[in-house]
Design a binder for these strands. Structure first.
Lengths: 227, 227
DNA sequence: GCGAATATTAAAAAATTGTAAACAAGATCA
DNA sequence: TGATCTTGTTTACAATTTTTTAATATTCGC
């Protein structure tokens, strides 16, 4: 039931092994998948084969500079939207401006704090990343809270608001039995008073729409969702 | 009808008049529309009324700090996606990390070069525009957010400002259901109060102009755009 | 089988949205 | 300037959908 998300991948190119190691270590600790390159040409190769989500480029590298790598990558459609961060010892305004104008998203000067770098990477991902949206998948049932859509076997099912919220509640913890009281509180709210049969009627409608046997009655207690 | 392009607007908050002046000057020279605030509370006020595309906040300000302003704004739906840059004399890793984690998109330490700031602003806008897509094409509908033009089957459709903003919001995430409240906040602003039927009427006008079946009503929830 | 709990059904009630028309405030233009 | 649009908003009512109630049947555990 838990949605497996592919970890975001980051390519780091730097000719100093120490930097590669410490930055890799910190980014991996944060949950990113890290690939390293020792120079510009290797960076381009690895970028093409791995298509990382973010690329960190040292500016001064043997072979090709970070700027050159960036320029080359940006001409390729696959990388026009990839986030690129420059890393450099050159603390010079004009170089920084040049880096940002070359197509870099950020420019960090050495010596860098690995934690700051990580924060900046996180900030960029937060900004770029489309929110995954709260999509719940159980068996062949997909519940998309953002789009307010329920799909069963690829077929879209229209649920009214209370029906949707009730189903969303039950599916939030499959197999858990929700007490009638609990359901009332969470779907209707604490200050709304409705009759006893109201829940039943809504459950019935959901059962009708989904094909009945995914919501089980636990007599005297409540309901639970199970595929 | 003259097609005016709405310039991107930037709000700068700093208690040092010199900084306000020099930064404003440079950003205006770059073509941005600049609004200035002298402290945190003024920043919040101006943000609410002007809804700028980007906000630059000094961290140390009388009244509310930049971090506090950021935190407050981020809780409002209208500002959850606004770009925020921190500006500060505190060259301290932990503070920088805190700033980025508070929801800031960038953190620049003083003394700053106005040109570097401008470059960073440009870089962030370049990135955002890519994500938001200043020109959106959905089916045979083309929405140019920058030029305020909507084209359907090659034919230009004239939308009033509110209509355009509403459509732009809905199309910014196709299929996502926007809550009525969310729409009110993002199109009308946080402190504007309009009647219940106002949204409906605008939706109706858009439907009339585009041919009705691209905006779907999700009763009790909101509206969504779908081709 | 008994009784309490739940299912079913239809119809009433409530909530939400669609629509047309009217209005004020600006903008536009002759 | 005054007349005429355009825009944004409100109002009032119609149309629709959702939610609830209430009355009746059915189920399930004991």
């Amino acid at each position: 039931m838990a949605q497996e998300t592919k970890p975001r991948s980051i390519l780091i190119a730097d000719d100093e092994p120490d930097i590669l190691e410490i930055v890799s270590f910190n980014l991996q600790a944060e949950g990113y998948e890290v690939i390293t390159a020792k120079n510009g040409n290797e960076a381009i190769e690895l970028a093409k084969t791995h298509k990382p989500d973010l690329i960190i480029l040292d500016v001064m590298m043997p072979g090709k500079t970070g700027f050159e790598v960036c320029k080359i990558l940006r001409t390729l459609p696959a990388f026009e939207n990839t986030v690129i961060i420059f890393l450099t010892a050159l603390n010079d305004d004009n170089t920084e401006i040049k880096g940002l104008e070359t197509g870099g998203d950020d420019y960090i000067t050495k010596p860098i704090s690995p934690k700051v770098l990580t924060s900046r990477v996180n900030a960029l991902f937060r900004r770029i990343v489309k929110e995954t949206g709260s999509v719940l998948q159980i068996g062949d049932l997909i519940i998309d809270r953002e789009k307010y859509i329920v799909t069963s076997n690829g077929e879209e099912i229209t649920l009214a608001r209370k029906e949707f919220e009730l189903l969303a509640l039950l599916t939030s913890k499959p197999s858990k039995v929700f007490l009638r009281n609990e359901i009332l509180h969470k779907v209707w709210g604490t200050d709304v008073i409705v009759g006893d049969r109201t829940i039943d009627v809504h459950i019935r409608k959901i059962r009708q729409k989904l094909g009945s046997d995914c919501i089980t009655t636990v007599k005297g207690v409540g309901y639970k969702f199970q595929m």
